[in-house]
Design a protein around this nucleic acid. Structure first.
Length: 728
RNA sequence: GGCCGAGUGGCGGAAUGGCAGACGCUCAGGACUUAAAAUCCUGUGGGAGUUAAUCCCGUGCGGGUUCGAGUCCCGCCUCGGCUACCA
């Protein structure tokens, strides 16, 4: 693998970091996703501080100039600018670290250290991100040979180069405070650099632990009280931060600063399949780009991809579009020759705004009609997977804000409410393990290995896994074990669907075998929308069975042509039938409202269980039921709707409304508890007062039996719900 | 290492602090059938009890609050997802 520098397009999402973070608050999104975005944006505030690295003799003059002219926007060569969130720990800075790519590396490296530093920087440059990650446990670094001057106390501080400092965050340089930063602590320990405690944990730690921190033998990264910090000693962390930052600002050597983890967005790809950038490079007489860029004229938009016979990736850095036909690649405008931009946009480009175009897909004049945009946007409810938490959802918000700033959309945020549906896992699997001597190995002795997928914990020797049939295993306490050898534990879990595991379910196959309604219904019935849950073919079968029952409830399955079931007719509904219907409407409507689709379906099943027992099924009630079912199983519902005699599609029908009076049982069963345990049940009319209910409960013969010989201490009565008698 | 989420029957799951296990799957028995499939009916957390009435135990573990805890509080355990030196 070779790392090549390429000229690419970036989108300046960092300019929106602050707004992207702030506007999260008002969104009706899961807190978890908001937090992920906040962390991804990674706003932190602290201070930038300049450490002097110029000729020692000129230090006083430099300090004087700084006091006079203040903190410069960009640092000159005579300082090392660092970013810190803990300016209160400046007195504890015992060394500094700059990233290997930092421009000051060259200047700071002394002759004696040059060979070591150069070797280190070259090694760092050739390391892939992955290698850097692997080396995370132990830190590496090298001394430059130079020192910088700590502005708070004038002390010289050695400057090191180490790759645990990243060039593209903050200023690419840090002051290291090993007493109060884990990474610095680890580094200092490794290279035997001094550790000075400048924050006293006080009684937030056990006395023994506190003592190790004060002795510089442990790291304490929280807030406390300043020590060894000159005149700031004795003040609390936030107070010291504020005062030191203010003094540094007065002296012109520091200022408050805010940083974001969010990086600018690398927006170009060297692939064929992507939107071409509508950008033209002007060419000079010799046919070379002269550096001037212009946008494609709006009336020639969009720029379509040209036809290419071979658009496959070729492993070279230049984009496939470089091989486009000359007529496409080199447009001439007003006699001037241009070359089109040949990078293409990433997949995100489309997903950032497709919903806007859906509003007005045939408009060839503009992005979207403003009136339609105002009426449809923002999106009321966006259901998507959590895997989009930080990429798609952040990019789309960014684009929307840009479009908003430029007046193309009316709202600064695209998605009002967001709900994450859970991940659907593959079917539940039982996995046993066998050593290569074919002996069974209990699952708790097996772990994931590096050279083999599974190895023995004890000696790392490889084992292979065997997929077992459910009837080869049995449950023993908490665990599953092998039926033939109960000493052998078996793993039982559902795995993420993946080609490697071969547990991928293809929805097309489900549609072909069970129908689209069954697929949809099953996905909604599996469990709570937001939970991840395993697929189960038996479950699909179950909902298909339910749809069949619905069908037979309304359709005469034995007739040759499509006719109503003879039980369905224009009967006057019984009181009980009405109650079942209205209870169903009430429950299903509420469940849909809260996206509790699984329980809504359970209520629909109960309705069917009830009505298939009745031989007189009022047509009107069947129609209402079909409407309730329709969002879940639109195809079968539409067909049944027609069969029930309706001319127009049910899509135009209004949602059924329940009648509370009809949905309410007049007589209810109330449990009676004695010491919190249910001992009897009484049937009473709804709406009895506490006293009435208590009287009925105490009069119950079973209750009398339980409290015989005891004194009733207390009776808790929840009207229409329960009675609890405390007796001793 | 950090952050987030979850632990309830054989399985998926249900339950405003108030009858744990709705609904579905599985399994068992029965009806229909020459037979099977399909369908319909009944049962199905564990244990004791005569197959009954009934009782005991039971929502990962240990405590607590409460008349009452799957649900609330404290401390653990296990599993899953995301993330990874951001000063």
């Amino acid at each position: 693998m070779v790392r090549l520098p390429l000229r690419q397009w970036m989108l300046r999402i960092t300019a929106y970091a602050d707004r992207l973070e702030r506007d999260l608050e008002a969104l009706n999104w899961p807190e978890g996703i908001k937090k992920l975005q906040r962390d991804w944006i990674g706003k932190s505030s602290g201070a930038e501080v300049d450490f002097y690295i110029g000729p020692p003799g000129e230090a006083p003059a430099w300090a004087e100039a700084r006091r006079k002219f203040g903190f410069p926007r960009t640092p000159a060569d005579d300082v090392l600018r660092i970013y810190t969130t803990r300016p209160d720990t400046l007195f504890g800075a015992t060394y500094m670290v700059i990233a290997p790519e930092h421009p000051a590396v060259e200047r700071l490296t002394t002759a004696a250290q040059r060979a070591a530093v150069t070797a280190y920087c070259e090694a760092a440059a050739s390391k892939s991100d992955r290698e850097r990650q692997e080396a995370k446990k132990t830190k590496s670094g090298v001394f430059t040979g130079s020192c910088a001057i700590n502005p708070v106390n004038g002390q010289p501080v050695p400057v090191w180069v180490a790759d645990y400092v990243l060039i593209n965050y903050g200023t690419g340089a840090i002051m290291a405070v090993p007493g109060h930063d884990e990474r610095d602590f680890q580094f200092a320990r490794q290279f035997e650099l001094p550790i000075i405690a400048v924050v006293d944990p006080g009684n937030s730690l056990e006395p023994a632990e506190r003592a190790t921190v004060l002795a510089g033998e442990a790291c304490f990264a929280d807030e406390g009280v300043a020590i060894n910090s000159g005149k700031f000693s004795g003040l609390g962390t936030s107070e010291v931060k504020a005062q030191i930052t203010a003094e540094l600002a007065t002296a012109g050597v520091g200022r408050t600063a805010v940083n974001y983890k969010l990086r600018d967005w690398l927006f170009s790809r060297q692939r064929f399949w992507g939107e071409p950038f509508p950008i033209l490079h002007e060419l000079d007489e010799t046919g070379r780009p002269n550096g001037m860029l212009r946008a494609v004229e709006p009336d020639t938009l969009p720029v379509d991809l040209p036809h290419l016979d071979d658009f496959k990736p070729h492993g070279r850095p230049e984009p496939p579009l470089e091989k486009a036909p000359e007529s496409w690649l080199y447009p001439v405008i007003d006699g001037r020759k241009y070359k089109r931009e040949t990078n293409t946009m990433p997949q995100w480009a489309g997903s950032c705004w497709y919903f806007l175009r859906f509003i007005d897909p045939h408009n060839d004049q503009r992005l979207v009609d403003p009136e339609l945009e105002r009426s449809w946007m923002p999106v009321d409810l966006y259901i998507g997977g959590a895997e989009h938490a930080v990429l798609h959802l952040l990019y789309a918000r960014f684009w929307h804000k840009v479009l908003h700033d430029r007046g193309h959309v009316s709202h600064p945020e695209p998605f009002n409410r967001l709900v994450n549906q859970g991940m659907i896992l593959g079917e539940m699997e039982f996995t046993g393990y066998r050593g290569f001597d074919e002996q069974w190995v209990s699952a708790e002795q097996v772990t994931e290995g590096e050279s083999h997928p599974f190895v023995l914990k004890s000696n790392g020797s490889p084992v292979h896994h065997v997929k077992l049939d459910p009837d080869q295993v049995e449950k023993q306490g908490e665990r599953f074990v092998l039926k033939s050898d109960p000493g052998i534990r078996i793993d039982s879990r559902a795995y993420k669907m993946s080609k490697a595991r071969g547990n991928v379910i293809n929805p097309d196959a489900i549609v072909a075998d069970y129908g689209a309604d069954s697929l949809r219904l099953y996905e909604m019935f599996m469990g709570p929308l937001e939970a991840s849950k395993p697929w189960s073919m038996a479950g699909v079968n179950g909902v298909r069975n339910f749809l069949d029952r619905v069908w037979r409830m309304i359709v005469d399955e034995r007739a040759d042509s499509l006719t109503l079931n003879p039980s369905v007719g224009d009967y006057p509904p019984t009181e009980e039938q009405l109650r079942v219907l209205h209870k169903t409407i009430r429950a299903v409507s509420k469940d849909y409202e809260t996206l509790s689709f699984n329980t809504a379906i359970a209520r629909l099943m109960e309705f069917v269980n009830h009505f298939t027992k009745d031989t007189q099924r009022p047509r009107q009630l069947m129609s209402s039921f079909v409407l309730l079912l329709s969002p879940m199983a639109p195809h079968i519902a539409e067909e049944l709707w027609q069969l029930l005699g309706h001319e127009q599609s049910l899509a135009y029908e209004s949602w059924p409304v329940h009648d509370e009076a009809l949905a309410t049982d007049q007589s209810i069963e109330v449990p009676i508890q004695i010491q919190g345990k249910v001992r009897a049940k009484i049937s009473v009319p709804r709406g009895l007062s506490e006293k009435e209910l208590e009287a009925v409960a105490l009069a119950d013969p079973k209750v009398a039996e339980w409290i015989a010989g005891k004194t009733v201490r207390k009776v808790i009565v929840v009207p229409d719900r329960l009675v609890n008698i405390v007796a001793s």
